[in-house]
């Protein structure tokens, strides 16, 4: 093969690096830069069909595809776990289309794509967390019209959001919203943290990592740059609180993490374990044990 052919081979081989064509990547990259410049604001983008159904994180996949390069190491989690069908298929998609290394270790990943959790291991400067977002508009359930929500954001008319949270208090005695709990970013935009448990909201605040959010079906990208102020909405007499768990993880004994209930047998046996499987495995490998293991 002469050098011209070799060059052409290389172009063909790399043209669909990360699946998306270059024009689409440029469009998404421009949207990402705007989203970083205006933290919490939802930037419209022309979402593309991906070789997976909506609901499988096509927004997050497109964001990751637009940023990922050969030097990256990718981790993909679904509700904290690396080994669900959804996480495995997204990881395989990027292994096949980019050849990048993948990992389950939070600390070793340069890009972490996530569905609905923030890892328990604190993120560090230079890492990028990509959220898969189903519904990016925090006001959508209160106001279905896009033109109206856009105006509400423009005028910072967020009273309706407080009314909704206050109705929770009137009905339940506390704010009952536990997932997709709205935040205010850098004192300006009310933003949906995606359906993460509110347990993870404080991790968004002044996080040294860059947080990018992609909503495929709704065609929106937004961002929280490193060290950005992220405040969960609340009231003076009903301050924001994260979920508290009555007992530590049954496997690793961690008492400062988000736990999932797991059915252990068909006689109603159950236990609570870390939702973040990498965190739990790492702790067990370090010698930590919960009551199940003791």
């Amino acid at each position: 093969m002469n050098s011209l052919d070799a060059g052409r081979e290389q172009v063909i081989a790399t043209y669909n690096f990360a699946y998306l064509d270059e024009q689409t990547k440029r469009m998404i990259r421009r949207a990402i830069l705007k989203s970083i410049a205006v933290p919490g604001y939802q930037v419209p983008f022309a979402s593309r069909e991906m070789p997976m159904p909506y609901g499988w994180g096509t927004g997050g996949v497109q964001v990751t595809a637009a940023i990922i390069g050969p030097d990256d190491r990718l981790k993909v989690i679904d509700q904290g776990a690396d080994d669900t069908t959804n996480a495995i298929s997204i990881r395989k998609f990027f292994e096949r289309t980019t050849g990048v290394e993948t990992t389950t270790l939070t600390a070793d990943a340069s890009i972490i794509q996530t569905r609905h959790r923030i890892p328990e291991t604190p993120l560090t400067a230079g890492q990028i967390l990509v959220f898969q977002v189903p519904i990016p508009e925090p006001l959508r359930f209160l106001e279905p019209r896009e033109t109206e929500t856009r105006t509400m954001h423009a005028l910072e008319e967020y009273g309706v959001m407080h009314v909704k949270l206050y109705e929770d208090i009137a009905r339940h005695g506390h704010i009952a919203t536990t997932y997709a709990y709205p935040v205010k970013v850098e004192g300006r935009y009310v933003t949906d943290p995606s359906p993460t448990p509110k347990f993870d909201n404080p991790k968004m605040h002044r996080n040294p990592a860059l947080q990018l959010f992609g909503a495929g079906r709704e065609m929106r990208i937004y961002a929280i740059p490193p060290w950005t102020e992220v405040v969960s909405l609340d009231f003076e007499d009903h301050p924001f609180e994260v979920q508290a768990f009555e007992r530590p993880c049954a496997l690793c004994g961690a008492d400062d993490v988000f736990l999932d209930e797991v059915i252990t047998d068909d006689r109603g046996g159950r236990m609570f374990v870390c939702s973040d499987t990498d965190h739990c495995n790492t702790r067990q490998a370090e010698g930590h044990a919960g009551e199940q293991e003791a």
């Binding site: 060059g7 290389q10 172009v11 790399t14 043209y15 690096f17 990360a18 270059e22 990547k25 440029r26 990259r29 990402i32 830069l33 970083i36 410049a37 637009a66 940023i67 990922i68 390069g69 050969p70 400067a125 230079g126 860059l210 961002a223 740059p225 490193p226």
Partner: peptide, 21 residues
Amino acid sequence: LADPVLAGQSAFRAIMQAMAE
């Protein structure tokens, strides 16, 4: 560029990191 796809990716990451920090 000899390899515009990967050069574009790495230039973008530099710009994105610069915008984020």
